[in-house]
């Protein structure tokens, strides 16, 4: 089933959506969709401030990255005090230590273990997004944007992806190419007898 991508006026778009949704092979409980009014009038407009409060996501193209910046050395200090207890000291061999959290540093060779940022993460922006939304695990969402830039810089440096003197900000972060990016493929299986 294909969704037509329509460039046109918003109204035209709405009408077409109407038709598209009517064509879908949806559960029978949904087949009376065409008799719906175009809007019910429930809910209310969200304010810009309300959206800004929750809109914390960051895309690979950098959309969503906040102002501010960070560097590797500051990042290492924060890592040591706020992350190391769970994620380990990246200067020592972690393979024999049982940590309460995943290892964050790997070689940049795709074959090496453990799978971590350097050999498995396809986008550097994901690191910023994830750390800002949920780390440190015991105090989620407690870091400032500058702190997150700095820790991201330190982790990229520890994974041999950036140089020690590189500053990270909304301009530089999206430009970083991760070694593992070329390995990723989209699942294109569509069912049918073939096992893949």
């Amino acid at each position: 089933m294909k969704i037509k991508i329509v460039v046109g006026t918003a109204l035209l778009g709405l009408i077409l959506f109407h038709q598209v949704s009517a064509q879908q092979p949806v559960p029978s409980t949904h087949k009376n969709g065409t008799s719906y009014p175009s809007r019910f009038g429930f809910g209310r407009l969200a304010t810009t401030a309300e959206i800004a409060l929750w809109d914390i996501d960051v895309r690979p193209d950098g959309k969503g990255l906040p102002a501010g910046q960070g560097d590797v050395l500051k990042g290492k200090v924060i890592y040591t005090s706020k992350c190391m207890a769970c994620h380990g000291n990246n200067d020592t061999d972690l393979s024999k230590i049982k940590l309460p959290a995943p290892v964050l540093v790997s070689d940049t060779l795709a074959k090496s273990r453990p799978k971590a940022i350097g050999n498995y993460w396809p986008y550097a922006t994901t690191l910023f997004d994830y750390i800002r939304r949920t780390m440190p695990y015991n105090q989620p969402g407690s870091l400032t944007d500058n702190e997150v830039y700095s820790i991201t810089a330190y982790l990229l440096y520890a994974n041999k992806i950036i140089k020690q003197n590189q500053l990270l900000n909304a301009k530089t972060l999206p430009g970083i190419v991760m070694p593992a990016k070329k390995l990723f493929i989209m699942d294109d299986r569509k069912g049918g007898p073939e096992v893949r």
């Binding site: 991508i5 949904h30 969709g33 019910f40 429930f42």
Partner: peptide, 16 residues
């Protein structure tokens, strides 16, 4: 249905 809400907010046909 999520489609009902998408019609309510006027989802942009270019959104993928």
């Amino acid at each position: 249905m999520l489609s009902t809400l998408f019609r309510e907010v006027g989802a942009d046909p270019k959104a993928l």
